[in-house]
């Protein structure tokens, strides 16, 4: 069934998307085996191909869902099909979560060209990156563009950056001065910065200028300097510029750069998954980071999901050996 599901997704069968997402979320052993098979089959095709992936991150209240709604509308008007993953935090105490983004993205309601899956971050269970990566892989097979929206809190921007080709940071006017942006580490990751609620006028412009100055200070690899775009999702101001910026970033990447970036994202996710499951001890017993780097560089294994399982089995074997040896 796993292979069949993958084939249906690659044939862009919309009805296969929800069952596939349910499957990769299922933690029961038989489901996990099947999920790995589906994801491995998909990744062969979409690791370097498939949909363009765009991430939206930013502080709560920055207007991410409103911007997402505007972006969905925009991309739909160019006849692109869209898969959206919207991540909301889970309650630390009860594990419950309120996922309200779907309501804010009305442009996708009852449009078969838009698929929205809300996800709880399940922080206390760990592994958001892994779950989100699985979802992105599925959506990337079935749609033209994948959008990932998350609340940016600390590390999660980094995790989203590993998932997407272009990371958009949504800043709120007056959210802070340059020093605060630098402290939050958000000057290193984003490829495009949106200052939302541009209808706030001067305040928004000042924030935009602070950010522009920040990017001028360097700290980044490569030639791409992130454009800072003023957008008002409310009245549509700046959406043209945002589209141009997104397109500009895609072109600046070039085919080779895109491959490198996706490979780096895959590698980071395999490393994080293994570290989370087996700890640095497990990795060391098996052979350490150097061995991992070598295995990751091995071209024969494009699927990160399959590779994680394979390496996981090796690590488990190595751990058993150390435990049984005198």
């Amino acid at each position: 069934m796993g292979r069949d599901l993958a084939a249906r997704l690659l044939a862009r069968d919309r009805a296969a998307v929800a069952p596939a997402l349910n499957l990769v979320d299922d933690h029961r052993p038989e489901a996990r085996r099947e999920a790995t098979a589906v994801l491995a089959a998909l990744e062969e095709k979409v690791l370097f191909g498939g949909a363009r992936r765009i991430g939206l991150t930013g502080a709560p209240g920055a207007g991410k869902s409103t911007l997402l709604d505007a972006l969905v509308r925009r991309l739909r008007s160019h006849d692109q099909t869209l898969g959206v993953v919207a991540v909301d935090p889970s309650s630390q105490r009860t594990g419950g979560a309120l996922l309200g983004d779907r309501m804010r993205v009305r442009s996708g309601a009852a449009d078969p060209g838009v698929f929205i899956r809300s996800m709880a971050a399940r922080e206390r269970l760990g592994g958001l990156a892994e779950a989100a990566r699985a979802s992105v892989t599925i959506l990337a097979a079935a749609f033209d563009v994948v959008l990932v929206e998350t609340v940016g809190v600390g590390q999660s921007e980094g995790e989203v950056a590993d998932l997407v080709d272009t990371l958009v940071y949504v800043a709120q006017p007056g959210a802070g001065d340059l020093v605060q942006f630098m402290k939050a580490g958000i000057l290193e990751l984003p490829d495009v910065v949106v200052v939302n609620k541009a209808d706030l006028g001067l305040l928004a412009e000042r924030t935009a200028n602070e950010l522009k100055a920040g990017f001028g200070l360097g700290e980044r690899n490569g030639a791409w300097e992130p454009p800072v775009v003023l957008v008002s999702a409310r009245d549509g101001t700046g959406l043209d510029e945002l589209e141009t910026a997104l397109q500009g970033h895609l072109e600046s990447l070039t085919a080779e750069g895109l491959q490198t970036r996706r490979r780096r994202g895959r590698d980071a996710s395999v490393r994080k998954s293994l570290e989370r499951r087996y700890g640095s001890h497990g990795l060391t017993v098996w052979g350490g980071q150097a061995k991992l780097a070598a295995r990751l560089a091995d071209e024969r294994d494009p699927s990160g999901f399959a590779l994680t399982e394979t390496l996981g089995r090796e690590i488990e074997a190595a751990l058993r050996t150390t435990e049984t040896s005198p």
């Binding site: 979320d25 996922l99 309501m103 698929f115």
Partner: peptide
């Protein structure tokens, strides 16, 4: 529970799509 809150003024078609897509 993980709650998808879809708000008001939904058509039956939207509810069906939402339930399906959200799993």
């Amino acid at each position: 529970m993980e709650v998808v809150y879809d708000g008001i003024r939904l058509t039956p078609g939207e509810i069906v799509q939402s339930a399906q897509d959200e799993g």
